[in-house]
Simulated scan of single mutants.
Amino acid sequence: MEVGIDSFAASPKKNIDRSEAINTLLERIVFADKQGLDVFGIGEHHREEFLDAAPTMILAAAASRTERIRLTSAVTVLSAADPVRVFQNFATLDLISKGRAEIVAGRGSFTDAFPLFGYDLREYDAIFKEKLKLLLTIRDNETITWNGKFRPPLREQPVYPRPVQPKLPIWLGVGGTPESFIRAGELGLPLMLAVIGGQTHRFAPLVDLYREAGKEAGFAPQQLKVGLHSLGYVAATTQKAVEDYFPGYQKVFTKVGKERGFAPVTKAGFDAQNTLPQGALLVGSPSDIVEKIKHHSDALGGISRVSFQMDVGLPHEKLLESIKLIGQEVLPHIKSL
C-alpha cells in the first residue's frame, strides 16, 4: 500500500503571505520525499481560500527539488479544462520529474470553475464523460482524430510532448455516485475515493460495483486499484492530534456548511467520525491510525493507496512533524499490508 499527502494549498489573507505559503508547501513536499512517502497530491480550486488554481505549476516546482516521490493532482477538474492542455501539462511534468507524474481526474467538490471557464452546470455529467474519453484517447494515442460536443474536432492531430512513462497514470476521482464507480470500472481506471466524512465502510457496495464493472469489462483484478483520500493528521498521541486538528477543522467545515446549508460542526460530530474504527477521519496517534487504515482497507476489500488531507490551518511546523510521524511510524506498518 502506498501512503501520501494531499494539499489544497490553503491561502493566507495577504498577498505577501501567499508567497510564503506556496514556498512552505514546497518545503513540505520535499520533506515528504525525504521521509519516504510515496505520493504528494495538489488539488485544484478557484476560490480565494486556496492557492492551487494551477496545480501543475506547484508540482513542477516540486519535481525539480525531489527525487522519488510521485506527483499527482488531487483532483484535476477535468470538466472545466481542455483535455489536450491537461495532457500536455502533465506530460511535461512527467518529463521534468523523470517519470513521476500522475493525474487524478474528477469534477471537484465545488462548482466555481464552471462559470469561470464558461461551462453550463446543466451539462455537468455530459461534459465530464466526453472530456475523460478525450483525455484517455490522447494518453493512448500520439495522433488522434476526434469529434465531440464541447470542443472543436481534431483531425489526424498529433499531441506533444509525450511523457516518460509509456502510459501516463490516470486515476478517476469519485465521491458517492454509483455511475462514477461503474464508469471507472468499465474504463479499467484506478479509483481514488474521496471520503471526507461519515463512515468509510458505507462505500463498500460502491467499490464492489467498481470491481464488478471492471471484471465484466475484461480487466484483471490488479488493474482495479482503489485509493482512499481522507482528512487526517498524525501526532504523538490521539489526544494531541485532536487538540491540534479540531479547531481548524471546525472553522473550515462550518464555513463550507454555511454555503451548502449544513449544520455547524460540533465536537461531538467530529468525535463520531474519528473515534469509531469505521469513522472516516484519520486523526490520531501513529498506532491508532495504522489500525484504522487496516480497518478501512478490510472494509473496502483492500486499498492500494491512502492519502492524508491535512489543510485546516495547521502551522507549517506541525504539518512537518505529522509528515515525519507518517513516514517513520505509519508507513513501515502500512507497507506490510
Score class of each variant (00 low, 15 high):
residue 182 I to Q: 14
residue 286 P to Y: 04
residue 99 G to N: 08
residue 310 M to W: 03
residue 245 Y to F: 15
residue 319 L to V: 15
residue 255 K to D: 13
residue 268 A to R: 11
residue 25 L to T: 11
residue 264 P to D: 11
residue 264 P to Y: 10
residue 334 I to L: 13
residue 185 G to C: 13
residue 102 E to T: 02
residue 173 G to Q: 01
residue 201 H to P: 02
residue 271 D to V: 02
residue 201 H to E: 14
residue 85 R to A: 07
residue 321 E to P: 03
residue 150 F to Q: 06
residue 77 V to G: 08
residue 3 V to E: 02
residue 182 I to C: 09
residue 328 Q to S: 14
residue 221 P to Q: 02
residue 312 V to E: 02
residue 107 R to G: 14
residue 102 E to N: 11
residue 265 V to E: 11
residue 184 A to K: 04
residue 230 S to C: 15
residue 51 L to Y: 03
residue 51 L to P: 05
residue 281 L to E: 09
residue 98 K to P: 05
residue 215 K to C: 07
residue 54 A to P: 03
residue 240 K to W: 01
residue 75 V to M: 10
residue 160 Y to P: 03
residue 214 G to C: 12
residue 204 A to G: 06
residue 76 T to K: 07
residue 247 P to G: 01
residue 228 L to H: 07
residue 264 P to I: 07
residue 311 D to N: 03
residue 161 P to S: 13
residue 288 D to F: 14
residue 119 Y to L: 12
residue 32 A to E: 01
residue 48 E to R: 11
residue 186 E to N: 13
residue 301 G to N: 12
residue 19 S to N: 14
residue 165 Q to I: 04
residue 7 S to D: 05
residue 237 T to P: 08
residue 176 G to I: 10
residue 26 L to C: 01
residue 93 L to M: 06
residue 55 P to I: 04
residue 67 E to R: 15
residue 235 A to L: 03
residue 11 S to N: 06
residue 73 S to H: 00
residue 272 A to L: 14
residue 56 T to H: 15
residue 308 F to L: 11
residue 182 I to F: 00
residue 128 F to V: 00
residue 313 G to S: 02
residue 17 D to Y: 13
residue 146 W to F: 12
residue 27 E to T: 04
residue 150 F to N: 02
residue 157 Q to S: 11
residue 98 K to F: 05
residue 95 L to K: 10
residue 76 T to E: 10
residue 53 A to F: 12
residue 269 G to V: 01
residue 133 K to I: 09
residue 254 T to D: 05
residue 185 G to E: 13
residue 114 F to A: 12
residue 245 Y to S: 03
residue 85 R to M: 12
residue 38 D to V: 00
residue 291 E to C: 05
residue 166 P to G: 05
residue 75 V to K: 01
residue 177 T to I: 06
residue 117 F to V: 03
residue 87 F to T: 09
residue 305 R to V: 10
residue 254 T to W: 01
residue 123 E to N: 15
residue 124 Y to R: 14
residue 16 I to G: 03
residue 118 G to I: 04
residue 37 L to Q: 09
residue 150 F to Y: 15
residue 315 P to A: 14
residue 136 L to D: 03
residue 56 T to M: 10
residue 52 D to E: 06
residue 67 E to P: 02
residue 229 H to S: 10
residue 92 T to N: 10
residue 209 L to C: 10
residue 270 F to C: 07
residue 318 K to H: 07
residue 64 S to N: 09
residue 83 P to A: 09
residue 172 L to F: 01
residue 183 R to D: 10
residue 156 E to I: 05
residue 315 P to K: 05
residue 294 K to S: 11
residue 268 A to S: 14
residue 318 K to P: 02
residue 237 T to K: 12
residue 161 P to V: 10
residue 90 F to C: 06
residue 134 L to Q: 06
residue 332 P to F: 00
residue 156 E to S: 12
residue 62 A to D: 02
residue 204 A to Q: 13
residue 307 S to A: 15
residue 111 T to C: 07
residue 292 K to F: 08
residue 188 G to L: 13
residue 305 R to Q: 14
residue 229 H to I: 00
residue 196 I to V: 14
residue 164 V to S: 06
residue 101 A to W: 00
residue 206 L to I: 06
residue 201 H to D: 12
residue 59 L to A: 02
residue 130 E to T: 00
residue 199 Q to C: 08
residue 112 D to M: 04
residue 41 G to Y: 01
residue 242 V to W: 04
residue 72 T to Y: 05
residue 233 Y to R: 01
residue 188 G to M: 08
residue 193 L to N: 10
residue 12 P to S: 12
residue 243 E to L: 12
residue 41 G to D: 00
residue 30 V to L: 12
residue 145 T to A: 13
